[in-house]
Design a protein around this nucleic acid. Sequence first.
DNA 1: GGAAATTCTTACGTAAAAGTCAATTGACCG
DNA 2: CGGTCAATTGACTTTTACGTAAGAATTTCC
Lengths: 128, 128
Amino acid sequence: MREFYTITELTREFGISTRTLRFYEDEGLIAPVRRGRTRLFRPGDRHLVKQILRGKRLGFSIAEIREIIQMYKTPPGEAGQLRTIIDRVEEKRAELRQKRKDIEDTLAELDQVEETCVNRLAELRVAS
Amino acid sequence: MREFYTITELTREFGISTRTLRFYEDEGLIAPVRRGRTRLFRPGDRHLVKQILRGKRLGFSIAEIREIIQMYKTPPGEAGQLRTIIDRVEEKRAELRQKRKDIEDTLAELDQVEETCVNRLAELRVAS
DNA sequence: GGAAATTCTTACGTAAAAGTCAATTGACCG
DNA sequence: CGGTCAATTGACTTTTACGTAAGAATTTCC
């Protein structure tokens, strides 16, 4: 595993722009180190970018993604804080399960659509 | 099943604004009938709204939702068109399967977070 | 060592998806 | 018939998530 990635290496790997990565840094989602003014992305930063893009695909806003990322960085914290985190984790899981159900429902309806199409095609073949 | 719903009935049921429903109409996602200038939503319109909101939860844009909705309205079409639809259905399914995988991955990471928290809580209890 | 490429900051622009506000217009109720 | 409540259209505003452009500083390559 490489020690550092340049910004354009990551933009190419993930198909995003430099503007986007800098924006994510402004938003506090990633914090690459610097050599002079130039950003150096560590493997951990790269993994964060993956998680961010995964969140985006699922329709989470930057603010929501920031919350999720903060969960990943579980701080040593005291008991009350730990329980708060556990609660938030459960909330996010509920959201994700809802999305998963939405997906299953949509997939089922698309199956229906395809079946209808296939049947009509069969009818067309019989009629010809 | 009721014949018609008013706009505010639907806004209350789904927790959205009248502006939103009118916006969806402008965008061609729904087409409620009119009594004078007032919109009357039929059960079919209501179901469409459900599908739209499901799409939104999954992070689809209005344009993408419009595409999906058009698939549901499978037209009688000729063979070539039917095959085009089948192809598009398969594309959407691929997208949905990607999202489902993203969800599974995120859920797994959240499980990890929770486990870490629970373990630390246990340590705290031992130390006390 | 000079040109070309990469990176940086700063700032303004924009598309999508509504929110908000204003001015009407019916529709119903006592 | 007067009032009030719900609905409509139209215009302007806002927020999010970047795009784009300008100009300076580095770095890299021949």
